[in-house]
Nucleic acid binder design. Structure first.
Length: 115
DNA sequence: ACTGTGACACAGG
DNA sequence: CCCTGTGCCACAG
């Protein structure tokens, strides 16, 4: 399956590129920010065929589980996250609640609430 | 326009 | 915790 650049993918790339070291974003979150709230799976495809230069190891599923098809395997993704100070529990998951990152100005908390 | 393909999400058991 | 099924939708033939 080839997945050359496309609008949706371009947006995902832009967000992934902004994730700070030691923080993570979920597939569903990236999908929503990129314009398709229910296209989490598409983000997976984008990640698989996207630029290796981007920090894909900072993209995890909503439960904190590491990617199943990460280039180099989950152990490699875990290693890269660990290097940034991210702790992986015995189940191989990260604390999404605590490490989830949102692009400045697009936090869900400010979407419907006046600060 | 239709079909196959998922590095997901979510509801059940 | 595990596993299973169903919904999901951008993108390539």
């Amino acid at each position: 399956m080839e997945r050359p650049e496309a609008e949706f993918a371009e947006r995902v790339y832009a967000y992934v590129a902004q994730i700070p070291a030691g923080r993570v974003m979920t597939y569903g979150q990236l999908a929503a920010l990129s314009g398709s709230p229910r296209a989490a799976r598409i983000v997976g495809g984008v990640a698989h065929y996207g630029p290796e230069s981007l920090p894909w190891h900072r993209v995890v599923n909503k439960q904190g589980g590491l990617a199943s098809g990460y280039y180099g395997g989950r152990s490699e993704q875990a290693r890269r996250l660990a290097e940034e100070g991210v702790e992986i529990d015995e189940q191989g998951n990260v604390d999404v609640e605590r490490l989830l990152w949102w692009p400045p100005g697009e936090e869900p908390s400010q979407m419907g609430l006046g600060l």
